[in-house]
Design a protein around this nucleic acid. Structure first.
Length: 420
RNA sequence: CGGGGUGUAGCGCAGUUGGCUAGCGCACCGCGUUUGGGACGCGGGGGUCGAAGGUUCGAGUCCUUUCACCCCGACCA
């Protein structure tokens, strides 16, 4: 994309009402627009980052048998009354609204009830199970206090997967598969080394659950990490009895701040029974369905990545997450420079490399500052100087030195650097 | 929801014990000079000072109410 066709503009100054680094950087660099406290809109590059994160998640969900769906945001009150979750005393983060005729509606904060209800049209026999629907969709939660930029919003993007299994054993096996898929996702997002599967409280319907916690000084959670076992325990459930049960050595645990980037729950048959979703087994007997739910905060991860991969000059995206792999800077208005930059832009684009081409008539310093702030992994410069060498100038974001390389080499370097 | 802070141009801010035409920087428009790390000069446009009400000859400034944003806490299936 040409910079002259990209409507966003970077800012020099930090927004005064955003103390969190992730929101500061993403607003300054033109990735998001703040609508309200805890409510952000995604501008073109922010949308691209969301899509790139979603792509990783989607591929891993599909690989374990996920079926992607997109559920409605407006919710039927009766379904939630069936499970006992309509009452504000049970779920205090509801947003609710009304039809003009007075009928109350909910605005979805999760989707166990409507999804389970919809599946009643398709699940009858043991032959129809197991199934694993998931979606990447906007969730609404009326948090008392939004904070930490994109990391804790009232409206946010979440991947939610639900499993419907025929038995506890079948459920447990899938729960483990999801856990492994989650670790792959965090690896591919560049967070693998600092993300830990974490023992946590189970909420209402099960004794325990597992969270995935990424170590970060901006985290709201406290966990105790066993580095060797790559496992952690949330402070909420940290006690001697739990440590014994988990086989952890208290002396090896280190207390750390962390961001919850995922959570997996066993739900038993609470929702399937409440909504009347059953199956008939081989003997013709009606049986309960065992459910699980598995969440990943997509927009929260975007905030975390922005916060984690940054330096004093701005964002530093991993190559598979960056909205563009290349920031192509054309210096000056000399026709031969413009011609060469156009050629480079076309060649890279033809090879499937995503490029933002800064074709504006501005000074070099301003372009470089923008390139750094926006955080694309590669910066390529075309100028009178590079024309003289016959090569192009390539600089990786985060490194000081630039190198002089041919267009063909440059394409190879960028394509070979793709890890996933 | 308790406590604290802040609302002045798109953004960041200043505005004295109430005083005359509400300022500065960035951004934006025009002209010129510049041109490899956010250039400079000259000229210009943009404001119901968060909102409502009140006190006063006079309110950005004082009072009341209210809304929003930020922080701490509580909360976070």
């Amino acid at each position: 994309m040409r910079r002259t066709q990209l409507f966003v503009k970077t800012r020099r100054e930090t927004p005064g009402d955003e103390p969190s680094l992730n929101a500061q950087l993403l607003i300054k660099a033109g990735y998001v627009h703040k609508e309200l406290a805890g409510v952000y809109s995604y501008l073109p590059m922010g949308k691209a980052v969301i899509d790139n994160i979603s792509k990783v998640i989607r591929e891993e969900m599909d690989s374990i048998g996920g079926n992607e769906v997109l559920m409605s945001t407006l919710q039927n009150k009766e379904l939630w009354q069936a499970s006992g979750r309509w009452d504000d005393r049970v779920v205090d983060s509801w947003f609710k609204t009304k039809l003009t005729n007075g009928t109350e509606l909910g605005i979805g904060f999760s989707h166990e009830e409507p999804l389970t209800n919809a599946l009643k049209h398709f699940i009858n026999s043991y032959k129809d199970l197991p199934v694993y629907p998931y979606q990447i969709q906007t969730k609404f939660r009326n948090e008392l206090r939004a904070k930490s930029g994109l990391m804790r919003g009232r409206e946010f993007l979440m991947k939610d997967l639900y499993s419907y299994s025929r038995s506890a054993a079948e459920h447990e096996a899938f729960y483990e598969k999801v856990s492994e898929a989650y670790l792959k996702i965090y690896n591919r997002l560049g967070l693998g080394a600092i993300t830990y599967k974490t023992f946590a409280s189970g909420g209402v319907f099960s004794e325990f659950s597992h969270e995935f916690q990424t170590l970060s000084h901006v985290g709201e959670d406290t966990v105790f990490v066993d580095e060797d076992k790559k496992f952690a325990v949330n402070k909420e459930v940290y006690n001697d009895e739990t440590l014994v049960k988990l086989g952890l050595d208290k002396s090896k645990l280190v207390e750390q701040k962390a961001v919850e980037v995922g959570n997996i729950f066993s739900l038993g048959s609470k929702y399937s029974d409440a909504l009347g979703l059953y199956f008939v087994d081989e003997e013709g007997e009606k049986q309960s369905i065992i459910m699980g739910c598995y969440g990943i905060g997509v927009s929260r991860i975007m905030g975390l990545l922005a916060e984690h991969f940054a330096d004093k000059d701005g964002l530093v995206w991993p190559q598979n997450i960056a909205p563009f792999e290349v920031y192509l800077a054309k210096l000056g208005l000399d026709p031969s420079v413009i011609g060469e930059a156009d050629t480079v832009y076309n060649r890279l684009t033809e090879r499937g490399i995503s490029v933002v081409y800064d074709d504006r008539d501005i000074r070099a310093g301003e372009m470089f500052a923008d390139a750094d702030l926006m955080g694309m992994p590669y910066r390529i410069v075309v100028s009178q100087k590079t024309l003289g060498t016959g090569n192009l100038e390539l600089k990786k974001r985060g490194e000081q030195a630039a190198q002089s390389v041919s267009l063909d080499n440059l394409v190879e370097i960028i394509l070979n650097a793709r890890k996933y």
